[in-house]
Amino acid sequence: MENTVQTKQSPLLRLILGAFVIIWIILAAFPFLWTLWGSFKVEADFFSKVDWSFALSGDRTIAETGSAFTGAGYYGAWVQEEFWRAAINTLIVTFFVVIISLTLGTLGGYALSRSSFRYTFWILIAALVFRAMPHMTLVSGYLLPFFEMNVWGILPTTIVVLVAINQPFTLWMLHSFFLNIPKDLDESAMVDGCTRFQAFRHVIIPVMWPGVITTGLFSFLLAYNDFAITSMLLSQDNQTMVPKIGSFLGTTQVQGNVMFAVAAVVSATAPLFILVLLFQRQIVSGLTAGAVKG
């Protein structure tokens, strides 16, 4: 059916559209490829004062290290600046944020999708308003109480905060996924004598995985990509990767070690790259899940 519409396109129009796609792909991919390539060079090549083509040929890199590629930036970032610590912290934070977010979110989202009372509407609207709160305004609310309670700077605090900030979005998404699971399913289980929780546990959980995986991906992205919360709530030793890169900016620029930051940036992008590669379908379906409801 689609093809009948498409064949009507004039060759000129197709050419224009094709060119547009190519330009967009270059815009989207080139910055990453360029930085990946440049991260194996020395600073004099990546930020070449003389000629930009040095970054391609690696003239200065050869002069300084004897080979066209160097892992000095990576060594500096991971070993010298102990970026591996930040990587481990990121792993811990993202893991717990995803697990806790999904546990709370599935329970809440399921309840919201199965109740037809007026307050479900209000809870969803409240969640939408909470979703709109700039994270920095919330941080200014956290800092003083956290200092007073002496829980500032540690990973668990950040995990709990990220879970809470993630909840509005998680609720909305899982709510719309659960709406697609027919109500008859759990209702018939309850007719057969299950309690509500048993119905949820034995009937709904086995069929809800596609939605949960998609929502989990977005929880992961939120925790992984966050800068506002993690940079303000974690002490220097407990920093995750993104705030660590943020603090590299201050220190390395002075010491002339910008390449450390470049290497760290590439290292932190790699997992995201793999994530998109593996879960492209789920990410696309997740982005459109909210839109279906309008």
Binding site: T103, L104, G105, L107, G108, Y110, A111, L112, R114, S115, F117, T120, I123, A126, A127, F130, M133, T137, L138, S140, G141, Y142, L144, P145, V160, V161, V163, A164, I165, Q167, P168, T170, L171, R196, F197, F200
Partner: peptide, 26 residues
Amino acid sequence: HRAFFWFILPSALAMLLFIALPIASV
């Protein structure tokens, strides 16, 4: 209502404590 309350409680509590309360603190 009762079942709904228990299902939504953890999520609502998280939002109240870490989104609504900080706004009050602000």
